[in-house]
């Protein structure tokens, strides 16, 4: 059995979901960083997630919301992992040109957050 191909609208919604996950992962990381103090490395990681969320949001059509609703998960690492799993379902075609950058950012962030 093979995974059914995603329709264009599904793809856009998937990228919007990835943007939302990254947006809220950045928010949660910023909260954790604030708890740890102004010198926490998490501030730098949080900005990385924020930038990746902005990169993903740029690929989302204006009628889809890349910020809301908020995902139910709270752990930034878990949010990143979900985003990475979703990214695997995004096809490579003309409509998703530029998504490679998001995939690369996600992989880098996962390595950074997981170590």
């Amino acid at each position: 059995m093979t995974t059914p191909p995603l329709l264009p609208h599904d793809t856009q919604e998937t990228i919007a979901a990835i943007a939302r996950l990254l947006h809220h992962a950045a928010d949660r990381t910023a909260c954790q960083a604030a708890t740890e103090g102004s010198r926490s490395e998490l501030h730098v990681l949080g900005l990385g997630m924020h930038v990746a969320a902005a990169e993903a949001a740029l690929l989302v059509p204006a009628d889809l919301d890349p910020y809301w609703p908020q995902p139910t998960q709270a752990d930034p690492l878990e949010l990143l992992r979900i985003a990475e799993r979703l990214a695997r379902a995004v096809p490579v075609n003309d409509e998703t040109a530029g998504f490679s950058q998001v995939v690369v950012s996600l992989t880098d962030l996962l390595r950074e957050a997981g170590s």
């Binding site: 949001a57 910020y67 809301w68």
Partner: peptide, 18 residues
């Protein structure tokens, strides 16, 4: 809000600072 996006040039500049 849903229709607003960050400026790509600003995203790039932020990424470079990081």
């Amino acid at each position: 809000s849903r229709g607003e996006r960050a400026d790509p040039a600003l995203v790039h500049a932020a990424n470079e600072v990081r």
